[in-house]
């Protein structure tokens, strides 16, 4: 793989400038390079493509990087990654996928991620998707994620897709037991003829659990976005869904938040807003000396920050 392209992709999807510290598994065109540590073991699955990432109980302040890079046109892969996180852990997991497609055949990565998070563990999971290359071949990513949080566990998910992916169908289901906290933030920007479907469900089964879904997006060109964020409360819990989208050009956005309470003590709220950039926002920034284009960029970057 061309080293410049490799470096560029790694920086975009994992903020990596070098080999990461700690455990990692870098998958390039289907081949993996990896490093295990005392506390974190990564092993290849024997029954299907993919890896198991096993984090020992009590592992604190450690990170795992598992970026996926594709530069071959026509490469399509389906990968299963299982994360087994012990009790009382505090770990950062940086996933993400970069596709550089200069050919005319579609390149696709479909990742199926499943998490089992032990009691009182905290996981921060960052997933960035990025595509580039001037070929006519499509860049496709269909990530699927399921997670189960044991009592007292918490998970922060940051999913970012701000350029170059032609088609995405994302599905996420998270189930949480007592005293859990789930924070899911999604940042999305689409342009041209890109299409995204994002289907997210968080199910709060245990008392004293909290969940927030915060989705912010910008749709430009002829792109389309479809959101189905759903929160289900089956116990004394709190949940909040917030979706904010800026629509531009000839784009189309549908946002269908759902809250579902199956317990009298569940408190669930949803808010969804779609609108173009307000004219007075642009004008205000112009009075501070920005051009109309710079003002627009500031506003979009702010929203997607």
């Amino acid at each position: 793989m061309n080293q410049d392209i490799r470096r560029g992709l790694l920086e975009k999807i994992a903020d990596l400038h070098d080999v990461p510290a700690g455990a990692y598994n870098i998958r390039e065109n289907g081949e993996s390079v990896r490093q295990n540590t005392e506390e974190i073991t990564i092993e290849t699955k024997t029954d299907k493509p993919g890896i198991n990432i096993i984090v020992k109980s009590g592992t604190k302040n450690r990170s795992v990087h598992i970026p996926v890079l594709i530069t071959k046109t026509g490469l399509t892969e389906m990968v299963y990654n299982d994360f087994i996180i012990g009790d009382d852990c505090d770990v950062l997991i940086v996933a993400g996928c970069g596709i550089h497609n200069t050919g005319d055949e579609a390149s696709a990565h479909d990742g199926v991620h499943s998490f089992e998070i032990g009691k009182n563990s905290h996981v921060r999971y960052i997933e960035k998707h990025y595509g580039e290359g001037n070929g006519s071949g499509e860049r496709i990513m269909n990530p699927e994620m399921t997670a189960h949080l044991a009592e007292g566990a918490s998970m922060e998910i940051e999913s970012v897709q701000i350029g170059g992916i032609d088609s995405t169908n994302r599905k996420t289901v998270i189930t949480a037991e007592e005293k859990c906290e789930v924070l899911l933030s999604e940042r999305l920007m689409t342009d041209g003829h890109q299409d995204v479907v994002s289907d997210t469900e968080i199910i709060l089964n245990g008392a004293d659990s909290k969940a927030r879904i915060n989705s912010r997006s910008v749709a430009k060109g002829n792109s389309t976005q479809l959101f189905y964020p759903k929160l289900t409360g089956n116990a004394d819990c709190f949940g909040h869904v917030q979706c904010d989208s800026i629509i531009m050009d000839d784009a189309k956005i549908r946002s269908i938040p759902e809250i579902c309470a199956n317990c009298v003590d569940a408190r669930l709220v949803h808010e969804a807003a779609i609108g173009k950039i307000a004219g007075d926002q642009i004008l205000k920034l112009m009075t501070l000396g920005l051009t109309a284009e710079e003002a627009e960029e500031k506003i979009l970057n702010g929203l997607l920050k």
Binding site: D280, L288, K305
Partner: peptide, 27 residues
Amino acid sequence: DVTARSEAGISYGFQQPPRFKGITVRD
């Protein structure tokens, strides 16, 4: 235009200021 007048040295604080999601006071 507005930008050029700003550069020329005119400043205006709005009667009804707009709000900006994601932009901090310091920004």
